[in-house]
Write a protein that binds this DNA or RNA. Structure first.
Lengths: 343, 343
DNA sequence: TCCTACAATGTACACGCGTACATTATGACA
DNA sequence: TGTCATAATGTACGCGTGTACATTGTAGGA
């Protein structure tokens, strides 16, 4: 039942002009007499004609799509993760306003992903990389994109290479503030539950933590640094180790809220009263942070704004003549005090 | 610095074959001598040649993209909503496996959205509609798609028109179970905080609630039915009205967890002890439900599965010859009892 | 050896658009 | 009226595929 679309030729005939003129009217290009424009518009309307976006992309040599490359983690509902969902919301907002398409792409973390071919095959005109890590193959792929001068931006992952554009958050300060908050409350032996070390933002958090500890003259004890993977489950599992070290611990800083929640749940399961047994601070200020019992002291990170900014920068660059210059934006973070860190 | 891509012609020359053969090898079409296949592969590899996806789409007359149409609500971080994020995660999983592209599209709720033109312009080969409502203009647009026999599927919104394919959840039963749970606990005067009436899933919830009440011989009191918009804020605001009616209320069923949480927070702010003052049940079994204090009794809805199923059905239909036949799948819901509904 | 069937490959073109370049209309000005 | 700049439009072609159809190669049977 799908009716064949009217062709540009038919529109041209009906309006009594050439196909080129139809094209010009529909794209708002070049000088056109007002009467002609009206005739063409009318003819197109009457025939129900619409530009074929694929053909137009082809002729222009641009897909009109911005790609967002996401890690595919089996069994994880990626969009349901505060981190990704917020960043994506920001990206969505910016791209929506621009009229470009938003194409979602999955990559296997750790695998080499051929970003360049995304451009070679013209599936995207520019792309945003989320959840990137320091792993060699992943870095190579990204560096290669930079070498080719392709328009892209990495979100929340720092690389030393200055050619790699990125939008990050100041996790060093965020983590520093979280730790200092506990130190100011008189805690000295503060542990740290970090996420996977392969992300720069994990390293940054660790750095901020260490910095605060050193400044306070209570250097971080390596034995009190735990590693999870940012999942609630990993926090839950870390509870055993933390439980064992409980006598040597005054407080704990977690690299995200989910792990903090998992940890608290795990400790409770092991008979600890929380937060009395161990003040905890989270990180991200996710929805869960304020809803959880106890509400989490945490670090607010402008994920939405980061996504939006990254997309906007990319879209700007797309317009300007000689692509976009590499850039690095770092947005600030902020401590939010709630009950989980109080005795 | 962007190096020009090698052309199919060059590959053909290097391999000593025609362009058609190159195309056949790369698409795995038709019988090809093994030695030829190898030569072509090698040549393509050597030249770093890759099919131009846009050109291929153009030649095929298909974009290779599945569209997901989302409502754009200003200031709402759509992906950060349990409902959308779960459905999207499911869709993402199915589409990822299929090798199609996943194109995100925004529509203004209530406005007429020209779905048909999405196809006419070939931006998508099929599409999924999320967050659709009963509003006349929206319905018209969707019916029009059905009339044109376009491949699409509406998620979690029922229409009477049998030509409209959809994947829904059994909210009547879900809401029925939630209400019955309270009735079984001896509550009689049960109120209902619904979401916007323009969604069929709101109507279904209301119906399940009324059904349970009638069966129990305690017909729903219209005065005890409140309306929010599924946001936490709207739940918070509803607290005033509920507070006023507190003497006439034994318990309250909410149409989603966010509103339930907002309501409880609002009532607490007005000096009520919760859940003692009013047992509440939520709906969705979002992450927040189990984290909140008190943990919410709620109804589990397989949003992820719904998204996945809808996408799979669409992708199947794409393969089969004469498109997809209209279908309606209804997935079941399940009550989960926690503390918010206990005295 | 010739014929036939099918495998393997080549030839040629359409797909629908954007746009460089060519051409014609228009109006201002001398 | 003639000239010229510019507006307005037309002509023609390329973009890189997929694929229908034509052609050639090959093997097996009569």
């Amino acid at each position: 039942m799908r009716q064949a679309m009217a062709t540009r030729k038919e529109v041209a005939e009906l309006a009594g002009v050439s196909e080129a003129t139809v094209s010009r009217v529909l794209n708002g290009v070049g000088p056109i007499k007002e009467s002609t424009r009206a005739r063409v518009r009318e003819a197109a309307e009457k025939l129900g004609y619409q530009l074929n976006a694929v053909a137009a992309s082809f002729a222009r040599g641009k897909s009109g799509n911005i790609g967002v490359v996401l890690p595919h983690v089996p069994k994880v509902h990626l969009f349901s993760t505060f981190y990704f969902s917020e960043i994506l919301s920001g990206i969505g907002e910016a791209v929506r306003e621009s009229g470009q398409g938003l194409l979602l792409l999955y990559r296997d973390p750790g695998e080499a992903y051929d970003y360049a071919s995304l451009f070679a095959t013209q599936r995207v005109d520019a792309c945003l990389v989320l959840g990137a890590s320091y792993q060699p193959r992943e870095m190579e792929s990204i560096v290669r994109m930079a070498e080719l001068g392709l328009p892209f931006c990495v979100v929340d992952q720092r690389y030393d290479d200055p050619r790699i554009p990125s939008v990050c958050a100041d996790h060093v300060t965020g983590s520093y503030l979280a730790t200092k908050h506990l130190l100011d409350a008189g805690r000295r032996r503060i542990g740290f539950l970090n996420g996977s070390a392969r992300y720069s933002n994990s390293a940054d958090r660790a750095q901020g933590y260490r910095k605060a500890m050193e400044e306070a003259g209570a250097p971080a004890d390596p034995d009190l640094i735990y590693e999870g993977n940012y999942s609630r489950t990993s926090g839950f599992e870390a509870a055993s180790a933390v439980r064992r070290d409980l006598e040597r611990l005054d407080a704990l800083v977690c690299a995200n809220d989910r792990m903090a929640i998992g940890l608290i749940q795990g400790l409770r399961e092991q008979g600890c009263r929380m937060p009395e047994a161990l003040p905890v601070v989270g990180y991200d200020d996710s929805d869960a942070a304020s809803l959880f019992d106890p509400p989490l002291t945490t670090v607010e990170v402008p994920f939405y704004e980061m996504g939006k900014l990254a997309a906007e920068r990319l879209l700007e660059g797309r317009k300007s003549e000689e692509g976009l210059r590499p850039f690095r934006e770092t947005l600030s973070t902020r401590l939010i005090v709630r009950k989980s860190s109080l005795i």
